[in-house]
Simulated assay, not measured.
Amino acid sequence: MSTSPTTAAASVPAPVSRSAHRLATRALGWLRRHCELGTLPPGTTAEMADPDSVYKPLGETALAASLVLREGLASRKETETARELLDFAWWELRGGDMLYERQLRYMMMADPLELYAHFVRAGYRHPRMDALVAHLRSLTSTRAAEQVPNRRLAVANAARLVGLGGDVDWRRLTDDTWLGNTPEPWAIDWMTAYCVTHSVFHITDWGGRPGELPEPVEEYLRLWLPVWLDVWREIQEWDLVAELMIVGSCLNEPYFDAGLWEELAATQHEDGLVPRDGKPVEGDTAQRFREHHHTTVVAAVAGTLALSRAGVGRTR
């Protein structure tokens, strides 16, 4: 697959490219080797008593793999690994049937559409799901569902990916977020920082549309992103640091701190796991997967997008 036409190459220091390559390659390999730990429990239905336990991580794995394919810069082996991860997650979701059944049963929920969008990005389609979400998007009740502002951006981007973007007012949705108001930067807290990152991810479709950020937001992030990165790197909140580093790749003028990239790469274990924070990584393989899967996904995405902005292909 070719690189997204809206993503321009940027001047990226060589140390960043090296660290990004290591992070992405090892993280992707770790996700593939351990994906069987993320299978849905037997008898899982669309109701899902605990969606965050396996269902959500399946979607996160699909996100990372879909971006590897979208950017088109991975080696043949890594491309095959990404496709295998997507096939695995699609199989676990019964070829999309579980997403369809969950969306049909819970019409106001957005997660089935959001997960589906990651697969659509990589070429997977489910005709009944397509018909259902098209119908639901036509209903006032689903369009008016109560959601926090960055979640509205998430749904809008998912709809855009599946071909139901319509007449979304992206500027209005952006202005409704904390980030869109370019507020006092020192007021940011841990949860708000995650909301900031996801606002950027959804507006730009994970770096695929960097020019979509309004200029005031772009300028605000160029000024304050380095400060926020310093805050959370100092206390070794690596999951949030990696998400903020993805934000750097989503800017029209991307931001890369070579020292920080090398520091994050140094936290990665030899097997590819990236710890969520500075605490010791403990427990058996299953516990390590549960507790550090998200950060390893984020590292894979961060490395992939940094390499893409640099226009650097990995060794084939």
Rank of each mutant, 00 (worst) to 15 (best):
V68M: 02
L40S: 10
D87S: 10
V54R: 09
P51F: 11
L40Q: 09
T45G: 12
L31I: 11
A62M: 06
F88A: 05
E36L: 14
E84S: 05
L67T: 02
L40K: 10
G59S: 10
R70T: 01
L37F: 13
S75Q: 13
R22I: 13
E78W: 00
V68D: 01
S66K: 04
Y55N: 01
R76N: 06
A49H: 01
E71I: 05
D52V: 08
P13N: 07
S2Q: 15
A9C: 12
S4D: 15
Y100K: 01
T61F: 13
S53R: 11
L93G: 01
D50Q: 09
D97Y: 07
A8G: 06
R33T: 15
S2R: 12
G96P: 09
W91M: 11
E92G: 06
S17N: 09
L63T: 01
R32Y: 00
R22E: 15
G29S: 14
P15Q: 12
A89R: 03
M98K: 02
C35S: 11
E36K: 13
E60C: 11
V16K: 02
G72M: 11
S2D: 15
A65C: 08
R70A: 03
A74D: 14
V54D: 08
F88L: 03
L31E: 05
E80H: 03
V54G: 02
A89K: 04
L69H: 00
L37G: 08
E92P: 06
L86C: 00
G38Q: 05
L69T: 07
G43H: 06
A82S: 05
W91P: 04
G29R: 10
T6P: 02
A49Y: 01
L63A: 07
T81F: 00
W30S: 00
S66V: 05
T44W: 06
L85M: 08
V16A: 14
S75P: 06
E71S: 07
A14F: 15
D52F: 10
G95D: 12
W30V: 02
R18N: 09
T6G: 09
A24Q: 11
G38E: 08
L93I: 06
T61R: 04
K56R: 15
K56H: 05
